[in-house]
C-alpha cells in the first residue's frame, strides 16, 4: 500500500465531492463553472499522483495533465461566452430563470 498515493487520491476524492455538490446546488452559472473547475482539479491531482507513484517513467501521463488544463480553460471560455450572451438577452445568469431551456 502506498500511503502517499492514498493521501493524494483522498484529497482528490474530497475535492470531487465538493465540486459535484457545488455544480449541482448553485443557482448561478458562474458558480456552477467554479464547481466544474473543482472537479477537474480533482482529476488533475489524481493524474499527477498516478504518474508520480505508479508510472513515473511515462511522460504521456504529464501530457494528459496538460490536456485537462486545456479543457479547464476551454470550459471557462465557452461558459463565460454563453454567460455574456445570456446576460445581454435576459439580464441574469440565474439557472432558476432559465426554465425555458427545459422545453
Amino acid at each position: 500500500m502506498i500511503l502517499e498515493l492514498m493521501i493524494a487520491l483522498t484529497a482528490g476524492a474530497a475535492m470531487f465531492g465538493t465540486g459535484l455538490y457545488g455544480a449541482l446546488s448553485q443557482t448561478n452559472l458562474v458558480m456552477i463553472i467554479m464547481g466544474v473547475e473543482l472537479v477537474l482539479a480533482a482529476a488533475l491531482v489524481n493524474l499527477v499522483a498516478f504518474w508520480r507513484y505508479l508510472h513515473p517513467e511515462e511522460p504521456a501521463a504529464q501530457m494528459f495533465v496538460l490536456i485537462i488544463m486545456a479543457v479547464m480553460a476551454v470550459e471557462m471560455t465557452v461558459g463565460f461566452g454563453i454567460a455574456i450572451a445570456r446576460f445581454r438577452s435576459r439580464g441574469s445568469v440565474e439557472m432558476e430563470e432559465a426554465r425555458e431551456l427545459k422545453g
Binding site: I2, E4, F16, G17, L20, L54
Partner: peptide, 26 residues
Amino acid sequence: LSLWAGGIGLVAALAVIWLAAWGPAV
C-alpha cells in the same frame, strides 16, 4: 439532492481508492 450526489461521489471514490490494489510503488 446535491448533498447526496456529492456524498455518494465521495464515498464511491474513497471506496475504490482504499479497496483497490495499486501494486508496488516506483
